[in-house]
């Protein structure tokens, strides 16, 4: 029982603690990075859902809104552009989706002038779906940004930043709404 054994035990214990710390931090970082990826996929799911809703909406609305050709066409073309923008990068996609949002909100504002349409059961159901899809898009964006914030904090704060640097964890990018149209919601007023 020399000093050597005691030193050995201490060294082993320290080594054990260091490895445990690296292990847990690394796993935590991977979990957060996957959470960010998953949150991003969620946004895409909701955007696609909105694209799928629009043909249905147009079909219902068409018969009632004979004098709103322009508004209707704006929505259809914005939707087609948004579908084309899939896969062209975050910025372009966010811009196209922003245009679609504002075209849709213009349409919904015009609906106020058509009481028959507003009372249509089919339309009411669609409107609930549309409202909810808009909410889901913004909530999935919110969750994505929350996840990125958590992940970035972890990669930048002491001591987990050391592990993040060692294994090359890069910080994530926030989803900013870039389209000018989305930032300032259109004000439609009817005298």
């Amino acid at each position: 029982m020399g000093i050597g054994i005691i030193v050995l035990i201490v060294v082993l214990a320290v080594l054990f603690l260091v490895i445990g710390f690296i292990w847990m931090t690394y796993n935590g970082l991977v979990r957060l990075r996957n959470q960010v990826k998953n949150a991003w996929a969620q946004i895409d799911v909701q955007l696609k859902r909105r694209h799928d809703l629009i043909p249905n909406l147009m079909e219902t609305v068409k018969g009632y809104m004979k004098h709103e050709r322009e508004t209707l066409e704006a929505v259809t073309s914005a939707r087609n552009l948004a579908q084309k923008a899939i896969g062209t990068g975050v910025g372009a996609q966010a811009k196209a989706e922003g245009e679609l949002s504002s075209a849709l909100s213009r349409l919904l504002a015009v609906v106020e002038n058509y009481p028959d349409l507003k009372a249509n059961q089919n339309f009411m159901a669609l409107q609930e779906e549309l409202t909810s899809t808009e909410n889901k898009i913004s909530f999935s964006r919110q969750y994505y940004n929350d996840s990125v914030l958590t992940y970035n904090n972890k990669t930048q704060m002491v001591p987990s930043n050391i592990i993040a640097g060692m294994f090359g964890f890069k910080t994530g990018e926030f989803f900013e709404v870039t389209a000018a149209a989305e930032r300032e919601a259109p004000k439609v007023s009817f005298g």
Binding site: Q35, E128, E129, S132, K136, F139, Q142, D146
Partner: peptide, 16 residues
């Protein structure tokens, strides 16, 4: 009850 279902799904998304 589509509205209730949608609201719960919205909160499921927001909370992850």
């Amino acid at each position: 009850h589509p509205r209730l279902y949608n609201v719960v799904e919205e909160m499921k998304i927001a909370s992850g």
